[in-house]
Amino acid sequence: MSLTTTSLVETVKNQYFYKLKANIDSFSSLVGIQSLAMLFSLGGVGSSGFSGGDISVNIKYYSSDMIFVFTMIWAFITAITITTKPYRNYDFTFVTNRLSSSLANVLFLGSAGLLGAITSVLSGNLLQIISALFMDEQLYHLSGGSSHYILGILTTFFYLFLISSIGYFIGTLVQISKVFVVIIPVLFIGTLFFQAFSLKEKEPFFWNMIQFYTTETTVSLFILKAVLTTVAFFTLATSVLNRLEVKR
């Protein structure tokens, strides 16, 4: 039997399509979690009202905010899931090395993030239609046209990708040592309060970190920040996974 040279690009491509099929369950859980979030959003995600004289106005906001948050949790969990032992072992049944496996994982999480972004942005429309059709509310739709959607999908995608890179990194740490199952929540809760009680008028450290991304108003700068962080987390995770043995 003659030897064949295996190319990295070809292997990553094969692994990617293999993963799309193997991880089909994560897409069905996306449908599930977004339906659930939709159900919670049916009462409106926010409301305000005022009245004066004979007039009383009550405004309810129907948006995909809650769906977005749920989708972020889904992206985080999906990323952790694919770092677990059975999922890594599926790759090694066929052709792979650790690098191609990680690259295919990144591509998979990217695709999952894109799908999550498109569905969560568009689900806002579905929510508004449902409320208009079935709840007998007067609908005032605010939209900036297709560019509004593209921008929404783009930023949602980068948020999801960022979250999944963090999930992937945390999942990887847990794979090296179960100690991280304790350390990571401790660190997380710790940072929530870190600097929060200091005498100087400072925002909590964790809040600052989130604001670093969320308060960025220039799209290109936000994308730059998100991409750099994502790349950093994926690179760290890949270099750690690169030394992990296949045990089953």
């Binding site: 064949t4 599926y90 049944t93 792979t96």
Partner: peptide, 29 residues
């Protein structure tokens, strides 16, 4: 293996297969 170090070698993985009763396949397929 094939004159390469086998750990993390793509060529070794592409030219070999390891068969045992623990081979893990995705349950979705």
């Amino acid at each position: 293996v094939f004159s390469e170090r086998s750990f993390n070698s793509l060529n070794v993985s592409g030219n070999s297969i390891f068969v045992d009763d623990q081979m893990s396949f995705p349950p979705a397929l």
